[in-house]
Design a protein around this nucleic acid. Structure first.
Lengths: 165, 165
DNA sequence: CATCCTGATGAGTCCAGGTCGCAATAGTGT
DNA sequence: ACACTATTGCGACCTGGACTCATCAGGATG
């Protein structure tokens, strides 16, 4: 109904190998330039911030303030736009863990699969093997190709199960 | 960080059998009264609207306008609050299919599992059996008890796979 | 059936989390 | 160094929903 329902993961998305070392930024900038884009300070700053997170999850607001700590004049919307760009390139992903803001991480070509406990709110990354067999099963039955990321699966974690019954 | 992170599905939620016939409303009102709540016109109106949807998904805005078609003086926030109440009672559920608003349905005690295509945006209900075996697998490995509903799993549907590659 | 107590309501305001339009700025191929 | 145009930063705006609070009305009681 609203703006963008089916905008994520355009088929052109090219999952590129990206290492988390210092050269990564230059490699990404080359990739952007190949596509006719430009290597700019804000884009480098956002990438630096994501690399600094070392693959951990960050909400957009954290990324914005991390970037602005070093570059106070970079605007919020530029960070959002850069995250979207990097996601199109297949370099970063965002996941919705619950009702709050989405969480971003440098994914390379490996999306993750998260479980969120609706009781304590904690999110944990899950073993991809279990999800893969679900995906194989569903693809075989229906042809629908599941994508692990984007939304966490909710449930009750082991410790909440044992404590709260 | 914000208000409610871990509020969904309080342990007291009692999944009650609810039929979709005309007596359902009275039964639900009795249930509400047992808990010290009151049977009110807005609550009946919201339930009527959900029953009218016959189990189909509705976004909150549709439910609000459906209710207000018959009762123009019922406020939006009352509808939201009533949906929350009915969800606590285990009678309705909401699911996030994508980035837009959440979708509500009369669930009784049976939550559903949806697949959303990130290419065409369509959501389809999936066979619960596949999800159940995933849930059994994950519970065995980690003790985390998965809940099918609340978030859809994204992917690419069969027709988008074949047409767009 | 009149009263009272308190849960529920509706109108309006506020908030988070982005998104958008646009004039100004700054990469980059030549 | 230039020109061309992708990007930026700013601020206004938008959606979906939560909150406040004075008022209203179920329904248990007498």
């Amino acid at each position: 109904m609203t703006r963008q329902q089916a905008s994520a993961a355009p088929p052109e998305a090219r999952a590129t190998e990206i290492r988390l070392d210092g050269n990564a930024i230059d490699e990404v900038m080359s990739l952007i330039r190949e596509r006719g884009g430009r290597s700019t300070t804000p884009r480098r700053a956002v990438l630096e911030e994501l690399i600094r997170a070392a693959g951990d999850l960050r909400v957009a607001e954290q990324i914005v303030s991390g970037v602005q700590a070093g570059h106070p004049n970079i605007g919020d919307s530029t960070v959002y736009r850069t995250l979207d760009l990097l996601e199109e390139l297949g370099l970063v992903s965002h996941v919705h863990l619950g009702h709050g803001p989405s969480h971003w991480y440098l994914s390379g070509n490996r999306r993750r699969w998260y479980l969120t406990c609706t009781h304590c709110g904690n999110a944990t990354e899950a073993d991809p093997a279990a999800f893969d067999s679900l995906a194989t099963d569903v693809a075989g039955r229906t042809g629908f190709v599941l994508d692990a990321g984007h939304f966490a699966v909710t449930g009750i974690c082991a410790s909440c199960m044992s404590s709260a019954g």
